[in-house]
Amino acid sequence: MATDLMSNGNRPSAEDIAARRKVIEVDRLDFAFGARQVLFDISLDVREGEIMVVMGGSGSGKTTLLRHLVGLMPPQPGKVKLLDKDMGALNRRQLLDLKRRIGVAFQFGALFSSLTVAENVKLPLRELTDLEERTMDIMANMKLEVCNLSGFGHLMPADLSGGMMKRASIARAIVMDPKLVFLDEPSSGLDPAVSSALDDLILKLRDAMDISVVVVSHDIESAFKIADRITILDKGRILISDRVDAVRNSPNERVQNLLHRRSEQIDVDPTEYLRRLAGD
């Protein structure tokens, strides 16, 4: 089982990773929705060609962190640097240039329902470049093929299965050949076989395109399979951010609870729980 979970064959060594350039630097990021603090003093980095999986329970702040990383939320206290650019200090044009160098695949695909799959994938090329239609077609078809979707470009998003929708979303995220790709819950709602195929796709993309990937996920098996490093968030704080083995063997009880899907609330004798509910 352990070997199955460790199938990121090209996982670089810790020394190798440490020697690489930082493509994401988050420094002391705080964020609050009104009076509710969501992120506390988050600092982390992602290196070139690295796959970082951000995990945590519901409400742990991982989606908020992702929204900061992709520029959907401006960093208030704290700093977010992508590809050596401080996102808080960029003007509109510089931010636009930076966004062309990153790709994002959302949890539910976020494909435009009025466009075909191929048109969805071509959209960034059409809107952000001056390429000819033929060139755009070739580029979009290449990315669809990489994502095992060749022949499905003419379909509408509503005609796709969950797994195909995720792959189409990834195809759109990589169509501009970004240096950095963010994937939000890529395996959620998928059966294990499809989820595993998606993990293979993520690894293939990293190796073929030499991109850095940040994956926000609940899926522990998937995380162990694809990650070079895992960051676990708990109530807005980083619980651990380390190599896969270090996370797996962490003595921290909360880390182990999360990894083994144990929860303090659920970890109660059901009979005792029902008795308490009944007021006995």
């Binding site: 539910f108 976020a110 435009f112 329902s113 960034p124 952000l128």
Partner: peptide, 22 residues
């Protein structure tokens, strides 16, 4: 509203496509 719920507006923003323009 549907595009908002489906995160399509977010997708435009992260692609660097201004939703107002588009």
């Amino acid at each position: 509203a549907t595009m908002n719920i489906n995160q399509e507006i977010d997708a435009l923003q992260v692609m660097g496509i201004n939703p107002n323009r588009f």
